[in-house]
Design a protein around this nucleic acid. Structure first.
Lengths: 250, 250
DNA sequence: GTCTATACAGTGATAGAC
DNA sequence: GTCTATCACTGTATAGAC
């Protein structure tokens, strides 16, 4: 299943402006309400990630969701509330990933790999949200209501930093890596995966035909390990499987 | 000299609203006009790169340049014209870099290194413009008037692609690199340098005290070569000097 | 739960005084 | 060459009919 084919419930009927008989769905009222909200969130995430939060207008969102602009405010108090709902969960899941990984009894290389796989996994499951976090970071960081985003980002950096330092000390990684530069390089590099995953032609992890996705994960693991590993270890196998189990059960 | 300390002629006098005696600068009329324009371009580039083109308003630009909004239109026909003037030269210089590099009689590794150095050099000389090209690529690509940007980007990708293929065939690079993924990874990675250069604490190339900058260039060369080189060559010296000469004389 | 209608601030841009 | 004043438009958001 590609990401673009997820069950979006995008009821693309041409919107019967008038005279349409009332649909007999009273019994699904709550479900319908939930779906509508979810649909609005998905449409918004799509647009925000594509054009940027500030450049996306309420009218654009309403158009795509077959709404009129005013009706959005039945579900959300403001445009910013929509953004919050889009990014809150991905951010808090990232935070939990960080905690889980830093509490592992693995060596630095395993923790680095687990970190990378976790990030790629989050990108895959929620590419739009992470694209927004990446592209609109200026807006988010300058805005008090989104401080929790910055906080988690800082924690992620700390985790990577300590992992790199640990690896250098134990000899798994080459000496003399500039950790600040390396963290920036790795982060940007991985962010190129987010757009990849959102292009739609990569297969999910759960799928038995997950060859293409595995390819992508292998690619990034390979590249990053080549950058940090001690020269004598560049051709060592990559212990991916053991790290991957971390993500089971979300 | 740090980038932030370049001679910007930012005449930060508190703007004498009224009663100021006329400055005796008739003889510098043309020069003054040029400087004003240049100042506006620099202020705009700064703001566009920081907040995004669409999110930056004419009034913000006017404020920072000690203008009133309407006066901007004496120098520029539109906001978009400002953007054009900011990015046109950097883009065309990038294009020339590409041509120069692809016409070299160097092997693939040397061409790759020259490519990286050229990009970093452009980032250094014009960080704001390249940040805009990076951050607002969605706007630029969806806009007919900026097709030349996309064209140069595509050429850059082609150059990298042929360089990587060449290197794999001649055995300088390891076999089986996914060139599409690798180009994306390298591009994003290098883009992290643009923001670095703009943070202001990196020293220019011309400067004899250019230690920090050299450090950064070395870092990226090292990382990228580790990603692409055949395993047997990861510890070979990096022939940087010979490639660097390409950039002399802009 | 959705629509109509609209308030109100902010946007890019213009015309004409100085 | 810069300012004043203002236009037409688009932005988010609200109130109330249905």
């Amino acid at each position: 299943m590609t990401l673009n084919q997820m069950p979006t419930l995008r009821t693309r009927t041409p919107r019967k402006k008038a005279g349409g008989q009332a649909l007999p769905r009273q019994q699904f009222k709550d479900l319908a309400a939930f779906d509508r909200r979810a649909q609005l969130l998905e449409v918004s995430a799509q647009l925000f990630s594509e054009f940027g939060f500030e450049s996306t207008t309420i009218r654009q969102i309403a158009d795509r969701a077959d709404f009129l602009p005013g009706s959005l405010y039945y579900y959300f108090r403001s445009k910013e509330e929509i953004l919050h709902e889009i990014i809150q969960e991905p951010v808090s899941k990232t935070s939990r990933d960080n905690l889980r990984i830093s509490s592992l009894n693995f060596d630095a290389e395993h923790r680095l790999i687990a970190n990378i796989i976790a990030r790629l996994y989050r990108f895959l499951k929620n590419g739009a949200a992470f694209t927004i976090l990446q592209n609109d970071r200026k807006f988010l960081s300058g805005h008090g209501d989104f401080e929790y985003v910055e906080a988690v980002k800082n924690k992620s950096i700390e985790l990577l930093q300590s992992t790199l330092n640990d690896g250098m000390q134990t000899g798994l990684f080459r000496k003399g890596i500039d950790t600040s530069l390396m963290i920036g390089a790795i982060s940007r590099m991985l962010s190129s995966a987010a757009s990849l995953f959102r292009s739609g032609d990569i297969v999910s992890m759960d799928n038995s035909l997950s060859y293409p996705l595995d390819n992508v994960v292998d690619f990034y693991l390979d590249c990053i390990l080549r950058m940090v590993r001690a020269s004598s270890r560049v051709d060592d196998p990559i212990p991916r499987a053991i790290c991957q189990e971390l993500m089971v059960g979300d």
